[in-house]
Computed example of a mutant assay.
Amino acid sequence: MTTTSRDLSISAMDRAPGRPVGQGDLSLALAGAEAIDLLGVEAIRLDGDQIVPGRRPEIADRLLDEAAASLVRQAPYESVDDWLWRRGRGLSAAYLAALEADGQLTRHRRRGMPFRTSPAELADSAARRQAADRWTSDEPVLAALAAALGIREERTGDSLGVADEAVLTVLAAVNDAVMELEAVRQRRAIEDAAFDNVWRGV
């Protein structure tokens, strides 16, 4: 089963090999992609920014099925923002492991170093070609999620090409969450620098 989340995971590896996407950023975007996929199969609907569970369809993709199983099914329901932070925890690593388990990634032994392997690389597969087709066709949802990760030009408003209000709500939440994570990083960097300066002055 092809999912937006899997296509995003593949695209992030394929389009930014020299400048890897931050794992926290990617995890948040993948959680958003899962929410959009769940909207597509009517497993959820949005009431404002609250995720309301719908029917429980059979989902062939293991990680997306896990996402559906982890939904909060009793009121008060979970907000999209809360979903991104809860479901997104460690999600990029889970998708990497799933791609490797499915044979979508390859690792080569380093010459002269029999016990060390090179970083994982995408194999030439149908899944990779399908993600590439979706990328080159400028599919709006994948493009918007990639823009939130900084690996595609950002578009706003009507230029997104997305008409579904629920999908737009999720995309906006992903953008806000990624910006919030970056703000946390910057704040920590400033605090660490200040701490280092204190110690240098001792």
Rank of each mutant, 00 (worst) to 15 (best):
T4H: 15
T4M: 14
R6G: 11
D7P: 07
D7W: 00
L8V: 08
I10L: 08
A12R: 00
D14G: 01
D14W: 09
P17C: 01
G22D: 14
Q23P: 04
L28N: 03
L28G: 07
A29C: 10
A33Y: 08
I36C: 13
I36A: 13
I36E: 09
I36P: 01
G40V: 09
G40K: 08
V41C: 15
A43H: 04
R45C: 12
D47R: 11
D47P: 01
D47S: 13
D47N: 13
P53G: 02
G54P: 05
E58Y: 07
A60C: 00
A60V: 06
A60L: 12
D61P: 04
L63Y: 02
L63V: 00
L63T: 02
L64H: 04
E66K: 10
A67Y: 04
A68P: 02
S70Q: 11
Q74L: 05
E78V: 07
D81R: 13
W83F: 01
L84W: 05
W85F: 12
R87Q: 11
G88W: 07
R89K: 08
R89T: 09
A93Q: 01
Y95W: 12
L99H: 11
L99V: 13
D102S: 07
G103M: 09
T106H: 12
T106E: 15
R107K: 08
R107A: 10
H108C: 08
H108P: 00
R110T: 04
R111G: 05
G112F: 05
P114Y: 03
R116L: 14
S118A: 15
S118I: 02
P119C: 10
L122H: 11
D124T: 12
D124K: 08
D124N: 11
A127W: 04
Q130I: 10
R134N: 09
W135T: 15
D138N: 14
D138E: 15
P140W: 00
L149G: 01
G150M: 02
G157K: 00
A163N: 13
A163M: 14
V167Y: 13
V170F: 04
V170E: 09
N175F: 12
L181H: 15
E182W: 05
R187A: 12
R187H: 08
A189R: 13
D192M: 05
A193K: 09
A194T: 09
F195P: 03
F195Y: 14
N197G: 02
V198I: 15
V202L: 14
